[in-house]
Design a binder for these strands. Sequence first.
DNA 1: CGCCCGTCGACCAAGGATGT
DNA 2: ACATCCTTGGTCGACGGGCG
Length: 373
Amino acid sequence: MKLDSDTVEIEVTSDLEGLGRTLRVADAIRRRDLDFVSKPGELVESEFETGSLSAAGRKAFALMLRKAGPEAGEDNKTFTITKKELRGSHKGNERIQPVMDELLRVIVRIRTTTKKGKPAIMSQSLLSSCVEEISEDGMSVVEYEFSESFKRVIQRSDYYARVNLGVMLALQSRYSLTLYDLGCLIINRQNRVVKMNVEELRRRLGVPEGSFKNFAEFRRDVLAKSKSEIDQLADFTVEWEEVRGSGRGRPVEAVKLTFSPKNPDEQEETAKELDRPKIGRRARRDGAVEEITAVTVSKLTGSRPFPTGSLHFCGDQHLLTIVADFGGGWDKDLIARAFRDKMGDRLLTLTGSALYKAWEGFCKGFVGMRGKA
DNA sequence: CGCCCGTCGACCAAGGATGT
DNA sequence: ACATCCTTGGTCGACGGGCG
């Protein structure tokens, strides 16, 4: 499978030598204090084997992963996180205990490689231990350690989902969270369509065995809800297509998921929604809100200029999408460097759709001159 | 920090649709 | 006609977030 193109120019400080890309990105996220989590692609594509995780559990694990940062794969390393950091919105610590229990119990099937580099499937838990301080003040901490096998996966992980914390914490349904992770992983690939059969999709999302027995419920309560949440809050949208079999009742056998990036105007609207309070979000999503203010068309376009550092860490999804679509498989930073050389000072003033246009044109021209990678 | 209440997600049951 | 799956309305409990 073609994953993210290789990067040559990520500055690897000496003690990061030998780390997979996932952890190097985690390092960059920590250094710049970005509101992202770098999740190993193997984890995002894993399936739940026993148990499932509630929405709170999934969010907590992401926060713990972010807290661990580039050291997540180190041996004999115990991390601490304050309960204050963990409990997203809910005041009071009384619901942290069940979440930790969940995280200790759950077992996932992860596709990984053996030491010899051969593909393998590993069933494993996520945490190996978890100690919760009894005192109930906000600064009391939870100590946790990742399981041995999970450490090995994350050490070797070379592809990652760059998950936006703000979006993640705003999502409500547990299935939205997992689908969003998957989207973050897929969105920068050239092929943004994933097809899988219904059983596999259910295990991926962690739908418990026996829940949503028929597809109509699954569609209404899982797919449709996740789609509306993600379309409203993420920087991409999801579509799905149902592939029906030919048996009695024509059951739906497989689902084709398509992730599409939003254009700058839509991203602007998304950013505004994330700033609004959670209350009434569903109503806004369903279009049940009356517009009171006079319509003032915002002229705000993406006002950020072209990033100066590696594109792997830039916050602009649209730029990444363009290079994935038109970059012919070349390394994005390679093209970016050539782009900066050619544009020179003009790049400083170029923003918004003009920037996207110039970038797209350059990517096409680059491939035209040098062929596909 | 913990209680409490409204909202939303999970599940069930009954009727409809579709293919064998 | 039957078996299977889809659709829709409704109920119950868990969860989020305001309040004391």
